[in-house]
Every structure is written in structure tokens, then in C-alpha cells.
Design a protein around this nucleic acid. Structure first.
Length: 589
DNA sequence: GCCGTTTTCGGCCCGACTGTTTTCAGTCG
């Protein structure tokens, strides 16, 4: 039997947590399962393999009991406790608890006292007004259940089974004009984005904006009056809540200047970061909330105008929002002067781009236009890497066409001063791990990036072998968009990334963080693990037109920052003189 | 169920809102 993947194990933990919750377990036990699911999902090594090696308790949040359950899952394919509880509670009951406003306690009473075991049964009972007779429930509860069911159904239809989250670039396309509007308003003082958008997460559910103002009501009305707003859900002296035309919720909170830091910190999250922050504070007799920091010793609440003050009062250096995921940033910021925090890479550190397309394949612009755009960004080098011979959609480049393209790029390189144009290719990794150009053609190029563009559904072992074969190829300098995921649209393919990082580090093959906002692949967790494994990292735009050469950079850099990367850890922050010898082909000759 | 610069046992964040209640449990973020 194949080992369960990390996401399958995480799903099993989530399910068991839900079942235990229905079974009336104490909340901390349920939280332990949800935490273990998250840790497993984020792990860059195979948790099944770690279990077989007897080392799985090295993961934070996995102890002896969960290890026993993991062993059962890996060896028999299931967890005995889950089998038992599935028999006790119908599947529809779990679905009922996912309805907003209905939790495990009340769902279980509906089941035991009225026999309601599905959303369907709940809807029927509510219509028949049978729920109001239950102690603790009323007519209002029936209305709310019916409304929640209707909303859940409508939402599911509207997004065709999606999650209702927005990829970050779409969210920022709303957030940035709104921030500009609010900052330009005469009543406003401070206006900052909070929430997961401020942490540069892959996708966001809604937008949170925190502000201070002379006239809070006037600022709230400025938001509700924006062209972007479709409907107003709330408007008052403390802010406003609106929905934009593309269905995104935006929440503006106007707060007192002396607690702006507390509120901004609180609403920037993440939840995991804040919980860990508060737990650590309690041990020092401090209680943190959005309103301030209550000191047990003095009984007084400290309000902070800035986030810097919040972190300083709690004994930390300032923590950049991208790091606030409870992945070790609190411990690192605790050291003297925050010495454990990395000096994070910025967009300005980039000196070149190693992945771009032109009209030769599926790009929109010519070589010269791409070169000019790269020069405008201050780049010293740009690799033109059009698709290869087997690429579909009529975007394939035959070996003969590539020969011509090499001539064109080299001619353009002579015509441009101050920028090195590399004749390259984004070559397809075929299902058997071979490449779709002959070796002698690959050898003549200045740069080769290899990517998977077909047969996404191979098993983990086959897919891993496929990519490692490319990594071990002498003329492959780098691997493109390693996992193939499209954020909110397509899951990553099955890969053993730990083995791949080992092979890449061993062979000196670079791996890119593809900066396209719907890819960001490597993701933050993988990029951090890759760097720790000794892999040389790139941040590439994968631009298909001049505009995205510039526009995608900040998403790739955001992922690098969320991976704790410094400029030194990203190869294309180096000058051309220092980058050129890092290429595998340069080291081979 | 996890975990240890107050603990190997007894802790394990904080506050708002809701609905059904006369003081609070459940749910959510």
C-alpha cells in the first residue's frame, strides 16, 4: 500500500478532531487534532516516512498518542478510533456542524432529541417548526438555520465548489485604490491594510483596513461612496463594512490614535501568531487584546499607538507581517535585539530574471521589448525562455525554430548595452523524465529551466523520479514552478519535495520561486525548506508580457520573505558577473 | 492531546455576538 500523503493525513486528523468534538471531548483535545492537521499539511517532509522512522514526535504538536494513531494509519490505512466514531455519528452530522451558527453541541442535541442527521433533515424540521420545542432553541433558530442553508447552497453554486477566497493580486487590486482613497481624505491620519493581505498570503477571504481620523464618520462615508462598492452592510462612527462588485467584503475600522498599534497588530494576525503571542504573554503576567496590554502587576492597560510598542512591551523586536505565522518568529524576535530574525529580501535586491516568454511561444511581446522592460527595472540580465518542442496550444518551438531564436537573442544582446540577454528555454520534462530537445541543442543555450507541463496525475514516486531525472540532467540549470499548483484553482501534484531538494542541492540545480501571483511556486513553506536543504533559490517572473515582468515581482518576493529568505539566499540578487558562474553549465566547463 | 524559565500534572488567548434566558452556553473570528 502506498503511504498516505501529508494532505491525506491532515484530512484524517481534521476528521478525527471533528468526530471527537461531536463526541464531547474537551476543546483542547480537539484543538490538538486541528493543530496536528495544520502541522502535517505544512510539513515539507513526508509525515508517513517520518512515522515509519519512529521520528514523527519531532514535529511540534505530535506526541505519543498521535504517533500511535499515525502508525495505525500508515500500516492499516485507517485509525480505529475514527472507524468507531464514524459508526456512532452519521456523516450528515459533520456537515451540519459546518453551518455557520451551528456547532457540535447543538448539532448533537438536534440529532439525539429529534433524529436530525443531515442538512436536508434540518431544513425539513425547521420548515415544520419542530425545532422550537427543544429547550434552548426558538423560532429564531429555525429562521437562522433555513437562512444559513440557503446561503450555503447559493454560495456553493456561485463559486462552483470554490473556497470563496481571492488570489492576492485580485484582492490588492481592490485594496490599493481604497487605501489611496482613504489616505487622500482630509479627515484621515493613519490608514493601514491589516489581515492576511498585509501578511502577503497566497489568497484572502476579505479585506481589513484600520485607520485613525479627525472625523471617523466622514472617513467611513468616503469608503461607502467608492465606485468599487456594490452594497453597504454597515456604516457608523467606528467605521463601515461594505461589499465590492466582485463580491469581496471590506471592513474599515476607525480607532483611537492611542490604540492604533494594538488594533493593527490584532487584526493583522495570523490567528496562530496571536494565540502564541498571548500565551507567552500570560506567563509574564500580561494579557493582550485588541484594546491594549493588561498588566497583572499594576492592573493597568497599556495602549500602544504603534505595533513597535506592542512588540517591545512584550519583549520582542518588531516582527514583519510576512513572518507572523507562528513558525518560530516569536522565538527569533525574543533574542537580543531580534538577532534571530532574518534581514528579509526586498524587490530592490533583484538584479535579473531567469524565466520569461516572448511571441516565439505564448508571450505577447518581442525580445527587444522584454529587454527594454528589464533594463527599466535596473536588471543586469534577462533569460528569454520560451516553451519547447512538445508544448501544446500551438505554442511549441521546434528545434529549428529554437536555433533561429538563439540567433535573434544573441543579435539583440549585441544591440543592448548594460544588460545580458540569455538565450534560454523552458524545456518540458516528459513523463519519463527526459527532455524534449536533444542534448546538443540544450548545451548550446545560455540557460535552461525545466518544468512539468503534462501528465499531472502521476503518482508521487513516479513524479518525484521524473523531476529528479531532470535535476540530474547536465544542461538543466533550474527547475520551474516545481509543484504546478494554481492558487485556488488547481492542487499541487504529488511530490516528495525533501528528496527533490536533496537532489537539487547535490547537483547545484537551482529551483525558482515562480512569482506569478496565481502560482507562487515554490510556496513559502517549501522555499524555506529548500533553502535550509542548501538549494540555490531564484525569484522569477515567468512574464508573458512586459508588464508582468515588473508586476509579478512583489508576489515572488513576498513568498521569499514569508520563507524567511535574505538577499544572499536568492541567486538573482547577484550581479551578472557573480551569477553567471553559478549556472550548472558554467561549473561543468 | 500536548507540553515544561513557575508545572511530568495541570494548565492550555481574548473578546464579541447571539439567542434564549433571568446569568449564560455556544459559536465565531
Amino acid at each position: 500500500m502506498a503511504d498516505p500523503t501529508n494532505s491525506e493525513i491532515a484530512a484524517a486528523f481534521d476528521e478525527l478532531g471533528d468526530l471527537y468534538e461531536l463526541d464531547g471531548a474537551i476543546v483542547h483535545r480537539v484543538v490538538a487534532y486541528r493543530n496536528a492537521a495544520k502541522v502535517t499539511r505544512d510539513a515539507s517532509v513526508s509525515v508517513a516516512q517520518l512515522t515509519r522512522a519512529g521520528r514523527v514526535t519531532e514535529l511540534p504538536g505530535i506526541g505519543a498518542t498521535l504517533e500511535t494513531k499515525l502508525v495505525a494509519l500508515v500500516e492499516s490505512g485507517d485509525i480505529p478510533q475514527a472507524v468507531r466514531l464514524r459508526a456512532k455519528f452519521p456523516a450528515g452530522l459533520l456537515e451540519m456542524t459546518r453551518l455557520p451558527g451551528l456547532g457540535p453541541k447543538r448539532a448533537r442535541r438536534l440529532y439525539e432529541e429529534l433524529g436530525i442527521d443531515s442538512l436536508q433533515a434540518l431544513e425539513t424540521a425547521a420548515r415544520q417548526q419542530r425545532i422550537r420545542d427543544l429547550r434552548g432553541f426558538g423560532a429564531r433558530a429555525e429562521e437562522n438555520f433555513l437562512a444559513a442553508i440557503a446561503r450555503a447552497t447559493a454560495d456553493a453554486d456561485a463559486r462552483g465548489g470554490g473556497s470563496g477566497r481571492f488570489v492576492l493580486d485580485r484582492a490588492l487590486a481592490i485594496a490599493e485604490p481604497l487605501l489611496e482613497l482613504l489616505r487622500a481624505h482630509p479627515a484621515s491620519h493613519r490608514v493601514e491594510l491589516a489581515g492576511s493581505a498585509r501578511r502577503w498570503a497566497d489568497s484572502v477571504k476579505d479585506l481589513d483596513i484600520i485607520a485613525t481620523a479627525d472625523d471617523p464618520r466622514a472617513l467611513a462615508e468616503a469608503l461607502t461612496g467608492s465606485d468599487l462598492v456594490e452594497s453597504i452592510a454597515g456604516l457608523g462612527d467606528n467605521g463601515a463594512r461594505v461589499r465590492t462588485h466582485n463580491g469581496m467584503g471590506v471592513d474599515l475600522k476607525v480607532v483611537a490614535p492611542d490604540q492604533f498599534g494594538n488594533v493593527l497588530q490584532h487584526f493583522s494576525g495570523s490567528k496562530e501568531h496571536n494565540v502564541a503571542l498571548r500565551e507567552a504573554a500570560v506567563k509574564a503576567g500580561l494579557h493582550v487584546s485588541e484594546y491594549g496590554i493588561l498588566d497583572d502587576a499594576t492592573g493597568e492597560t497599556l495602549r500602544c499607538a504603534t505595533e513597535e510598542e506592542v512588540y517591545a512591551k512584550l519583549g520582542y523586536a518588531y516582527i514583519p507581517p510576512e513572518l507572523r505565522e507562528n513558525r518560530g518568529e516569536l522565538q527569533a524576535a525574543r533574542l537580543e535585539g531580534g538577532a534571530g530574525l532574518p534581514h528579509l529580501i526586498t524587490v530592490e535586491d533583484l538584479k535579473g530574471d531567469l524565466h520569461s516568454h516572448t511571441v516565439a511561444s505564448d508571450g505577447r511581446d518581442e525580445i527587444e521589448a522584454m529587454a527594454e522592460a528589464a533594463q527599466a527595472l535596473g536588471y543586469e540580465y534577462l533569460a528569454i525562455t520560451d516553451h519547447s518542442a512538445s508544448h501544446g496550444f500551438g505554442d511549441d518551438v521546434s528545434p529549428a525554430q529554437l536555433e533561429e531564436q538563439i540567433e535573434r537573442i544573441h543579435a539583440a544582446n549585441l544591440a543592448f548595452d548594460g544588460i545580458e540577454l540569455l538565450a534560454g528555454s523552458e524545456v518540458n520534462i516528459l513523463p519519463d523524465g527526459s527532455l524534449d530537445y536533444p542534448d546538443e541543442l540544450l548545451q548550446r543555450l545560455d540557460w535552461v529551466i525545466a518544468s512539468v507541463h503534462s501528465s499531472f496525475s502521476l503518482g508521487e514516486r513516479e513524479m518525484t523520479e521524473r523531476v529528479i531525472a531532470a535535476i540530474e540532467h547536465p544542461w538543466v540549470d533550474a527547475i520551474g514552478h516545481l509543484t504546478g499548483r494554481k492558487i485556488e484553482a488547481r492542487p499541487p501534484y504529488a511530490l516528495d519535495v525533501a528528496r527533490i531538494f536533496e537532489a537539487a542541492a547535490r547537483t547545484g540545480t537551482m529551483i525558482e520561486i515562480n512569482a506569478a501571483p496565481d502560482r507562487r511556486d515554490l510556496n513559502d513553506v517549501h522555499a524555506r525548506a529548500a533553502a535550509q536543504a542548501g538549494v540555490t533559490i531564484l525569484v522569477d517572473s515567468d512574464a508573458h508580457r512586459t508588464r508582468t515582468l515588473a508586476a509579478s515581482r512583489r508576489y515572488g518576493i513576498a513568498t521569499a520573505r514569508r520563507a524567511w529568505l535574505t538577499a544572499e539566499q536568492v541567486a538573482n540578487t547577484r550581479s551578472w558577473k557573480d551569477f553567471a558562474p553559478l549556472r550548472k553549465r558554467a561549473r561543468a566547463s
